Simulated assay, not measured.
Amino acid sequence: MALKRPSWWERRAGLALLALPLSLLFFLVSSIRRRLYRAGLLRSVTLPVPVIVVGNLAAGGSGKTPVVIWLTQALHARGFHPGIVSRGYGGSASGPQRVSADSDPGLVGDEPVLLARRTGFPLWVGRDRVAAAQALLHGSPEVDVIVTDDGLQHYRLGRRAEVVVLNERILGNAWLMPSGPLREPLERLAGVDLIVANGELSPALEARLPRPAVSMTLAPGGFYRLDDPQQHCEASHFPAGRVHALAGIADPERFFASLRSMGLRLASCRAFGDHENFLREDLSVPEGDVLLITEKDAVKCAALAPADCWVLPVDAQIDDAALAPILERLHGSEAA
């Protein structure tokens, strides 16, 4: 199921203005709900291990998945045994489901399969994140910290720390739903432990932040062949002018720009909605040409892609010092 953003989310006019009363109602309901959880009138479930939520304020992909990979690997390097919980968006599973590197993305979602492949840590998905986290701990008792991919507004799951990934490109008009893409106002950032900026932030947005954001860049790795991941190559391997790019992610243009920055001259660029369910014809290229895809799309394309299809992985580059507030929340300032 591809995700489409309403066009009025980009402007403070037209339908966005007409929907402002609904946005006010949304704000009132969500604020009351959060206050009820903070007051204990709605019950949050506290798990026997600390939970770190990696989320965002806006609907759409902000770059959370690379941050989850970075965070879990950084915690593991410091002696923790992390597990991951995800909603499993785009998957059909309703109850808790364990995810492995070869799980069906149609069942558990594409991002969880990618996380399982990249990290190797125990990972469960479920619409009820509390049930998914409890199932994870039951199946992997060695886990001593859980990182959730998304779920900032899922207050039923108690959390020790919150990380927000901020991508200004998806903030649109910065109004609350349905007038804009925000699930919570920017003022919500005052209560989080770490703000990670995916891309440059405008001076106007930086001025509204309660603390400076930590910068994240997405660094491309080496290409690997989809049907044989042991085969690797550099951009210079591909024939000039016979390379096609495809992306079904939140920001396809960033993927295309990354390929061009590597010196590739693209014959075509095919942009699809986030979590797109591809058809074979979507991936077709002329005989002798090459198709380049994202690592997230690769988990769904193995049976559909042409023979000469290559995948470009990316890694989040974040200063190690950014982990300090998370470690403080887990073990106190002496651990940081």
Rank of each mutant, 00 (worst) to 15 (best):
K4W: 01
P6R: 09
W9I: 06
R12W: 01
A13V: 00
S23A: 15
L36T: 03
R38F: 01
T46Q: 03
L47D: 01
L47N: 01
P48S: 04
P48W: 04
V49R: 05
V53E: 11
V54S: 11
L57D: 08
T65N: 12
I69R: 12
L71H: 05
Q73M: 04
G79N: 08
G79R: 13
V85A: 02
S86Q: 04
G88A: 01
G90F: 05
G91K: 00
P96N: 02
Q97V: 02
R98V: 04
A101W: 03
G106R: 14
L107H: 08
D110H: 01
V113M: 10
V113G: 01
A116V: 11
G120Q: 10
F121C: 07
P122T: 10
W124Y: 15
W124F: 15
R127E: 09
V130W: 07
A132T: 06
G139W: 00
G139V: 01
S140P: 03
D144K: 06
D144S: 03
T148R: 08
H154K: 07
L157Y: 02
R159P: 13
A161V: 00
E162Q: 14
V164G: 10
L166M: 11
N167R: 13
E168F: 08
N173Q: 13
N173M: 08
N173Y: 03
P178W: 11
P185T: 07
L189P: 12
A190Y: 03
D193A: 07
A197T: 10
G199Q: 05
E200V: 12
L201Y: 05
L201H: 08
L201G: 08
S202V: 14
P203I: 09
A207Q: 14
P210N: 08
P212F: 06
T217L: 01
P220A: 04
F223H: 05
D227R: 15
C233R: 15
F238C: 04
F238W: 09
P239W: 06
G241A: 02
A247Q: 10
A247W: 00
G248N: 09
G248W: 01
I249M: 05
I249S: 05
A250H: 10
D251L: 05
P252K: 13
E253Q: 15
S258Q: 12
S258L: 15
L259V: 13
R260Y: 15
L266D: 09
S268I: 07
C269A: 14
R270Q: 06
A271Y: 08
G273E: 13
D274M: 10
F278W: 07
E287D: 14
V290T: 15
I293D: 09
D297W: 02
D297C: 02
A298H: 13
P306A: 14
P313Y: 14
P313R: 13
Q317D: 03
I318D: 14
P325N: 07
L327P: 05
L327C: 06
L330V: 08
G332S: 04
G332L: 08
